[in-house]
Amino acid sequence: MASGATAPGIRALRSRRRPPLHRRGLLTLLLVSAFGWSLTAVPWGAGLVHANGAAVIGRILGALLRPDLSAGTLRIALAATWRTFAYATAGVSLAIALAVPAGVLASGVLARRPGVRAVSATAFRAGLGGLRAIHELVWAWLFVAAIGLSPWVAVLALALPYAGILGRVLADMLDDVPAAPLRALRAAGAREWQVLLYGRLPMVRANMVGYALYRWECGIRSAAIMSFVGLGGLGYQIQLSLDDLRFREVWTFVGCLVALVVLVDLWSGAVRRRLSA
């Protein structure tokens, strides 16, 4: 009988391998001193500083009290808000669709034999790592160069790194569920994919949905930033207004972005509470 294919027992016999406590303390010390050293490596003094910065800051803050609420600006703001929201939602939805199968494969839980498991986990974890190593803004530049200014650029540029992040988190969660219910399912005759459907996925569902909602919120901020490359949306409008030094318009668009993020946060919070209740 291969070690990966033994029947479920009454109790777990092996516990997880962990480094001994004193070595973890040593590691912590090492990391903290590395952080301390890094502070000395930053060139704090140098840099290019705006000579007349204080006056500009005064103008920006003054504009905060009087955002531009004219019909024309509001119409642009609404359209840009909707576009940013649509990019984020489409991008994160596509990311979830990619992340679920990739995350399951990256966790290796479907493979029975340890060799297959290691190969599947290593390959898919590396793939997901590659996706999220590149920031969404860089993806956007790459896609703009390759495709041009199309809404697809925004959606894909958001979906790829987010799939990398969500897939990785899902894989870790699937690896980390309590073992006893899984053992009981195997004892009842369930195969590994049934253990996934009836054990692992239901146990990570609440956390994973909560995390995906949080990522959606991050996606809205990212979509706003990404539109700086010329894709339209709130970030693009903020950039245009800044270029013309129209700070009152800037605050209108920033207000829309804040309102959008807050609304999404309120809604996702309500969903999370219902899931965990």
Binding site: P8, I10, A184, R186, G189, A190
Partner: peptide, 24 residues
């Protein structure tokens, strides 16, 4: 005996009570 269905038809394990999937 192969683990899985074949074994499950012969032998069942009564857990100590905390082996169900809580969120289902």
């Amino acid at each position: 005996l192969r683990p899985g269905r074949e074994l499950a038809r012969l032998v069942g394990i009564m857990p100590q009570g905390f082996d169900l999937v809580p969120s289902l």
